[in-house]
Design a protein around this nucleic acid. Structure first.
Lengths: 334, 334
DNA sequence: ACCTTAAATGTAAGCGCTTTCATATGCAAT
DNA sequence: ATTGCATATGAAAGCGCTTACATTTAAGGT
């Protein structure tokens, strides 16, 4: 593989000049520039990005930590980040944390040791304090779907409470008053805030939050089926079920159907996230659209602006979810 | 951030010695080793992986090119690759090709210019010749779900024909004889081979392949709905529909339901891939399990063995799909 | 023609490591 | 003590770039 030295030799100029034409930041006369370009062409020269990184102290890489590589939610987020960054010639190094504290920390250290210019994290298990300490280090840290007051400029977050509110509100608007709720693990901020929104909507409608109609699931399909089973086994009376994410809603739908429910007439179900398969379900799932792909793009833009001095990018750190009314929820039939 | 030089100074040894204790490949006396370890500990030293890469000509990174970041299929594949590689201390650089020739090529060049130690590709648009030429270069190339004879040692592939055969066979076994088929784009080898399997099963059952009951879809949900629409509009008679992937099967299911079909009694549907949501659909989708996650792991192992000299790994380059009989297909009711 | 300046180009010192080769050290055998 | 050899350590070159600084060249003003 050709090196800059061979290019300089062939073009009859110094290394520095070749470097200059590559980096376009210093003026080089058109004549020499052309000679260099020709030489590069002729040798099929590709700069060694590792050497560039070492010399310039910039790796042009951004680390990303997600909980899981599979799962529609993270996929959309990564797709958003990658496309934006890739267009700017940066690359992404992706790793996983599996929602476990030690694995998340290990993943973060891994990315830092790789000298990423910045890291974008979707962490769930690690503490706020850890993140605050982390961001004092030399690698800029950005947070997805997590809001930490001290790090607010580096957070791209969704108004989960609003989402929770919209979900329940949509059901209330349809005349339901007995509403069961399957939450996510409450140590996860988004799960907590979604529940807050649910409570807010209930309060607004003068309905008391009933702990009996509340179940904590695991954000997976099984959480939804187990939750619904729990409510049914307890012989509770409810006409609608709000789930803190789509996976659980899907599990609940499946369980309901297997137990003779006719959806949505016997039971209205609402999810959260609007993952890709929400629209594949039967009936199609009413859910709250979580613009995670857009948020990913925005995180990338923020990095581009902060870290790579890409001045004129407009940043929006807060995103609002919206209701996607589909067929899994319907007006209450009296 | 501490450098190796500072460690050597603190430990009272030379750079070379520090490097040796890091790389564990040369003997260092226990006494000095301990001094160095202590110094590292005290300084919180983390080696600069960029400098290591430049000096050792090994980046410890593996490039991955997939068509899309989202999409359950690629997610499982990436998850398989990442977990295996990560455990070996390697990292993955992921980029996308969007099934377009120029984007795929660009992505590949991007990964190579990043000096990945190897690249694992899931390419669809690029030609065999291009791949053969590519693999003559200095970066080892591995292919997922694509078989190129000249590169056979570097291919991890699925027996798509067998899969296509199994899908149609399962339907034949249920007594169906009028079977429609929605294929994928025929320039994609897997789509082509799945169709071959379908034909093989028909032939074996003495049924003539009927071009009228054949439609080429786009591997997306719309391909399935359009395909089924086509068959229905043409007023063709068929009791089963085999789709070359799950997305299309899902689209077809949706269309069928919207047009009054009672599934699976009025129409049996079979998909291919067993993506995560196949089990979320209603009725649950009968499909062909594509062990893409395992194949990803295997590709990673192959790289570990070939490129990183991890001798004792057992490699299996061929995978066989299996039938997942679920509820979307059922015996023909006479 | 000569001097002043700005623009273009070259020189060389790093960036933080790995690795070859040379040297020093220790120890057993003579 | 002396030699020989294996083992542990150090010195220094080099990986392919960037960039501060020095030098050359060209252009403009008198």
């Amino acid at each position: 593989m050709a090196t800059i030295y061979q290019v300089s030799e062939l073009a009859g100029v110094s290394l520095a000049t070749v470097s200059r034409v590559m980096n376009k930041n210093t003026r080089v006369s058109d004549k020499t520039k052309q000679k260099v370009l020709d030489a590069m062409e002729q040798l099929g020269y590709k700069p060694n990005s590792i050497a560039q990184s070492l010399a310039s102290n910039c790796t042009n890489s951004v680390g990303i930590l997600v909980s899981e590589l599979h799962g529609p939610f993270f996929a959309q987020m990564m797709a958003g980040i990658e496309s934006e960054l890739r267009a700017a010639g940066k690359h992404v190094i992706i790793t996983t944390g599996h929602s476990e504290e030690d694995k998340e920390q290990e993943g973060i250290e891994f990315l830092i040791s790789r000298r990423c210019d910045a890291i974008i994290l979707h962490v769930e298990a690690v503490s706020d304090d850890y993140l605050i300490k982390l961001s004092k280090g030399s690698t800029p840290v950005y947070l997805m779907s997590r809001y930490v007051e001290q790090l607010k400029d580096n957070c791209i977050s969704l108004d989960n409470q609003l989402g929770g509110y919209l979900a329940t509100k949509s059901i209330l608007n349809q005349g339901h008053t007995q509403i069961a709720y399957i939450a996510g693990p409450q140590f996860k901020a988004d799960a907590f805030n979604r529940l807050e929104g649910h409570k807010q909507a209930l309060t607004e409608a003068d309905i008391k939050f009933d702990p009996a109609l509340y179940y904590i699931g695991d954000f997976n399909e099984t959480g939804g089926s187990k939750g619904l089973k729990h409510f049914i086994d307890e012989k509770l009376s409810f006409t609608a079920l709000v789930c803190a994410n789509d996976e659980m809603a899907s599990g609940a739908m499946k369980y309901a159907r297997e137990h003779g429910y006719n959806l949505p007439n016997d039971l209205s179900i609402v999810g959260f996230d609007n993952v890709i398969f929400a629209n594949y379900l039967y009936p199609t799932l009413t859910t709250i659209d979580n613009p995670i792909g857009k948020m990913g793009e925005m995180a990338a833009k923020l990095v581009l602006k902060d870290v790579y001095q890409n001045k004129n990018l407009v940043i929006n750190r807060f995103f609002e979810p919206t209701l996607m009314q589909r067929d899994s929820s319907a007006p209450l039939i009296k």
